[in-house]
Design a protein around this nucleic acid. Structure first.
Length: 376
RNA sequence: GGAGAGGUUCCCGAGCGGUCAAAGGGGGCAGACUGUAAAUCUGUUGGCUUAGCCUUCGAAGGUCCGAAUCCUUCUCUCUCCA
């Protein structure tokens, strides 16, 4: 298999590295943050704006698109790119996370997962093969295998069983991809599981690394565990993943978590946090997250983040933003979304620059000191 | 001038003799949000020396063991008729 990843430079102080992931819709410079557009749209912002910021890849979701608009529509439009008019890369999550988060509505067996639609309660079955097929129709540049994500606190036996199924599913996913041959144009990534058990994580990381996947994701983290546990397991798991392939931690996106991942040689991550928080009035700044709803901003004339190039920071005050969010005005959520995505894009630029200059750890320390300074 | 309806905690609004410091909204305050069932959710919202006590349901009196709830007077608002 031809490698899609090229490492460009490594920081001398840690495992942080610069790289390029080459995909059907263009190159992605890493480390990279990927905004989440579950339904084929990143909530509250135009594709053009995301494009112009510089994002080279966004997410969409197999589970959601399969339920709505459905495969017939996507087939008619030749895939999601043609349907939603995003001309860069799309990574689709497999539905593995929905299997986890919709836990009340599903049943996992080795053959596949049966679940009820959160929309109308209708019953559906996802098998690893079917999920590869669906993502092939979606036209994903990166497709994810179906996996079994588990919460912290479960026993070793249960975690082992989830990993056993995940491994089986990974094998079946590869077979299905190979069976599709030329029809499958994306890149199928494997997912490491193993819950919070070192032996399982190690085995999972090694096994998934060695399989015929062009990229490896770390799943099953950021599922409700303590931050220290997250940090431990990112570091531990990354240790056993090949350096030849892009490494992707699924589901993280606050600045502090991003730093942890990058430090451990992670190349990609995605998260709803930036966009969801934005809609709820949470704004990223160098001084931590601002809850713009708070009364203290009522008369504040200053911009959210000095130097930020987003519309909000260029044109409006904290007081105006405070007002918009309080009134539940759509523009509030939109401006906040743009801001948070711009902020993260810029943060990743700064991170890449610091690696380029061989001072990632120094940058991390300095950044986080200020980020945490205003926390109560 | 006549007839009727009504004044409830920041606002709207339920309650119509004890289980009422008083449902439910809204607003306010605080918190959460990390492979999106989220423009969402949670807590809190009279005071105090807080397992209790005090003040509160337009005002003042009264009935009752006990009243936001019943009676009397006053006052204010709204609707209809002249």
């Amino acid at each position: 298999m031809k490698s899609i990843f090229k490492e460009i430079k490594r920081d001398p102080g840690c495992k942080a590295r610069l790289g390029v992931v080459s995909l059907p819709h263009g190159d992605v410079l890493t480390p990279a943050f990927m905004p989440v557009g579950t339904n084929g749209t990143i909530k509250g912002i135009y594709h053009d704006t995301v494009h112009d910021m510089g994002y080279q890849i966004i997410l969409a979701n197999t589970y959601h698109l399969y339920l709505r608009p459905g495969m017939e529509v996507l087939e008619k439009f030749g895939g999601l790119h043609g349907f939603c008019h995003w001309d860069r890369n799309i990574l689709t999550d497999s539905g593995g996370f929905q299997v986890f988060s919709l836990s009340g509505l599903r049943k996992v067996k080795e053959s596949g997962v049966t679940f009820q639609s959160h929309l109308d309660g209708s019953r559906h079955v996802f098998t690893p093969e079917k999920v590869v097929d669906i993502q092939s129709i979606i036209g994903s540049d990166i497709a994810m295998v179906l996996d079994v994500c588990t919460p912290p606190g479960i026993g070793h036996r249960e975690a082992e069983e989830a990993w056993r199924i995940t491994k089986k599913w990974a094998e079946r996913s590869i077979e299905e991809r190979n069976r599709l041959g030329e029809k499958f144009r994306g890149n199928l990534f494997g997912i490491v599981q193993g819950n919070f058990y070192e032996d399982l994580r190690k085995e999972s990381a090694e096994v998934i690394s060695s399989m015929d996947f062009p990229g490896v994701a770390i799943g099953g983290l950021s599922v409700g565990e303590e931050k220290s546990k997250f940090c431990d397991f990112v570091a531990y798991t990354a240790e056993y993943i090949t350096e030849e392939k892009p490494r992707y931690v699924m589901g993280i996106g606050s600045p502090d978590y991003i730093f942890e991942c990058v430090e451990n040689g992670i190349d990609m991550f995605d998260c709803v946090l930036a966009t969801r928080m934005a809609r709820n009035g949470g704004l990223f700044t160098d001084d931590g997250v601002i809850a713009i709803k708070k009364a203290m901003y009522k008369f504040d004339e200053s911009p959210i983040q000095e130097g930020c190039s987003c519309t909000l920071c260029r044109e409006y005050s904290k007081a105006y933003m405070h007002h918009l969010i309080r009134c539940n005005e759509m523009l509030g959520g939109m401006l906040a979304t743009e801001h948070n995505l711009q902020y993260l894009y810029d943060l990743l630029l700064r991170i890449r620059k610091s690696i380029e200059e061989g001072r990632f750890l120094e940058f991390k320390k300095q950044y986080l000191e200020r980020f945490y300074a205003n926390r109560k």
